[in-house]
Each structure stands twice: as C-alpha cells, then as structure tokens.
C-alpha cells in the first residue's frame, strides 16, 4: 500500500515542484556556507597576514576576527531562514501532497 502511495506522490506535479524548490533552496544555502567557509580556510592557508590586519587603522579588531564573528552569526541566521521556510511553506506543500495521494488511493 505504501508503495502505491509513493507512486501517487511521485506522479503528482506538486511533488516535482516541492523537490525542485526545496532542493534549490537547500543547495543554495549550503553552497553559500561551504563557499564562505572554505574560502576562509584558503585565506588561512595562503594569506594569513591579511586576516591579521586591523579592520581600520588603529583598531584592535582584526579582519580575521570580524569575518569569523560575522560567519558565526550569518550561518546561524541562514539556519533560521531555512527552518522558517521548511517548517512553513515546504511542510504545507508536503501535507498537501500526502492528502492528494490519499484521495487517489481511495
């Protein structure tokens, strides 16, 4: 029975829409995080002096510290954004999809 339900869902255009939308969204966020993080790691490896420079003349805050703190906050905000969208929009689409499949199954 489960298998039939999966069959119904798979053939529902809403499923394709959901998967494409959520997939694009998740991968975009993941690429932002991976890009920033490994970009930062490369800076650590190849341009350490740059990260040790102050953000402006005379400041005690270095570029490295400022950028890292920004990433700590920004990555967390991205997770908040993802959770908000997934728990709202995407979950509604999913619930809709399952309802459709039950209807077809009758």
């Amino acid at each position: 029975m489960s298998s039939e339900m999966y069959e119904h869902m798979r053939n529902n255009p809403k499923f394709i829409k959901l998967v494409a939308k959520r997939g694009r969204f998740a991968w975009t966020l993941a690429f932002i995080v991976l890009g920033m993080f490994y970009g930062f790691v490369l800076l650590v490896a190849f341009k350490p002096a740059l990260l040790g420079r102050p953000i402006y003349q005379g400041s005690m805050v270095t570029i490295g510290v400022a950028f890292e703190l920004f990433m700590f906050i920004f990555f967390w905000l991205l997770t908040a954004y993802y959770v908000r969208k997934a728990n709202g929009e995407f979950d509604e689409l999913t619930a809709d999809l399952i309802k459709d499949a039950w209807k077809e199954n009758k």
Binding site: A26, W27, L29, A30, V33, L34, F37, F40, V41, V44, L51, G52, T62, G64, V65, E68, M71, F72, F75, W76, L78, T79, Y82, V83
Partner: peptide
C-alpha cells in the same frame, strides 16, 4: 586566533547537516 579558527570549523558543519 588559531583556537577561534578551530571553533568555526567545529561549528560550520551544523548548517550543512541541516540543509542537506
């Protein structure tokens, strides 16, 4: 500062776990 870099590496896995 090296310690702070370590911590970011420890942390950065979380968003990836959530998204993917």
């Amino acid at each position: 500062y090296d310690g702070y870099i370590y911590m970011l590496a420890f942390f950065a896995g979380w968003p990836i776990i959530l998204f993917l």
